[in-house]
Amino acid sequence: MNELLGLWWEWFPDLLQGFFLSLQVTGVCLLLGIPLGLVFALGVSAPNKAVRLIFLFVVELGRGAPALILLQYFYYGLPSAGITFSSFTAAALALAYCTGAYTSEIIRGGLEAVASGQREAADVIGLNKLDALRFIIVPQALRIAIPSLLGFSIIMFQASSLCFTIALPELVSRASAIGSNTFQYMPVLALAGIMYAVVCIPATIIVTSLEKKLGASSQT
């Protein structure tokens, strides 16, 4: 037991750096991806049919392709078309696209859940379509979507571990590097797993209680 703790103590600073990089790449991907999701959601429900079809295609592509493929495509595929990204940029962009595609469905659900009376009220006080979206519909839709968006963010944090396939030195990359140097795969992966869990378990509990709270308040 003491031996294990000693090893963990030795590896921990290295893994912690990877952990922060995982958080960073997740943060950037959400910061880009959720606004993208809003744009996709509005595009998919646009009145113009051509616009709708284009957005539908983009969204279905993002949802249909595994995140791993998107990562590989942005990092290894695009350079052959003359576009080269650092592994961090490629990871952030690929995961942002994935986030945009998935959250667009969540946000679209939120948009549809806004009571129809709200649109009518915006209409009769003379707000134009854009103002109605900006001041009335989108703020309420996002509020409805918050618990699901947070839930998705936790999944995205876990999915950021896929970035080890494009040589981003995040938590799993570092753990597996240590594993291959020391042949101590089991203990190092266990430590990495605990580090994910330390973030994800409390976050999930918070999201669940938030969900209950928002659900209860919307019923009054």
Binding site: A115, G117, Q118, A121, I125, G126, R143
Partner: peptide, 20 residues
């Protein structure tokens, strides 16, 4: 009623005056 639940009472009454 159809008031805007995410805006204060004052914002409910003022919004369209400013925007339209």
């Amino acid at each position: 009623f159809n008031l805007f639940p995410h805006l204060t009472v004052l914002q409910n009454v003022s919004l369209a005056q400013v925007r339209t």
